[in-house]
Amino acid sequence: MTLGTDWAIAWIRRSADVVAEHRVELITLDREIGDGDHGENLDRGFSAVVAKLDTLPEGSTPADVFKLVATTLISTVGGASGPLFGTAYLKAAGAVAGREDLDSASLVDLLTAARDGVVLRGKAAVGDKTMIDAWTPAVDSAARAAEGGQDEKSVLEAAAQAAETGARDTEPLVAHKGRASYLGERAVGHRDPGAQSSSLILRAAVEVAG
């Protein structure tokens, strides 16, 4: 069972729903250590994406879906998460360009490129208390699952679980990037909102797979 354009569209729709459901939680996390706009910004961005999904022409590939997501998020989000998530989807689109159905290895390519896009844009490393702390364990875990011969849904499950653990593990960290880095020790004890939204989005990918 491979995952195609229908899955990609369903993933994005589910991401939009999940972001809307967790809007207040993300706003609260961001208010504690940032500027409080993360939930609202992402919600607005994904709502704009959903409104555009119907304009995708017949025969679009997963890469076409991700490219649409990228350009829409970059244009509509307003905060740092616009360029960060936007670049993630843009690089993900590049990694799977031309492929109609994504197998386990393709999913690892997609996740790796997305993570590399976030690193390229934000220049954060693991342990900086950013969304990278969710993305990098997710990529590593997905790669191990794929190498172990697991199917697509299991690869996505491995990514989602690792992202959730990674997001939780940002709580004791001092931030070295982003608005929270101005707070020093005061950021300790709070979960990074970008890592949390990343884990929600990666969880959405599993929920709509097969």
Binding site: I74, A80, G82, P83, L84, G86, T87, R121, G122, R179
Partner: peptide, 14 residues
Amino acid sequence: DLGSAVLTAETAID
């Protein structure tokens, strides 16, 4: 100015 202004500018330049 602050962080995401740089990210948005870099993205637009890309």
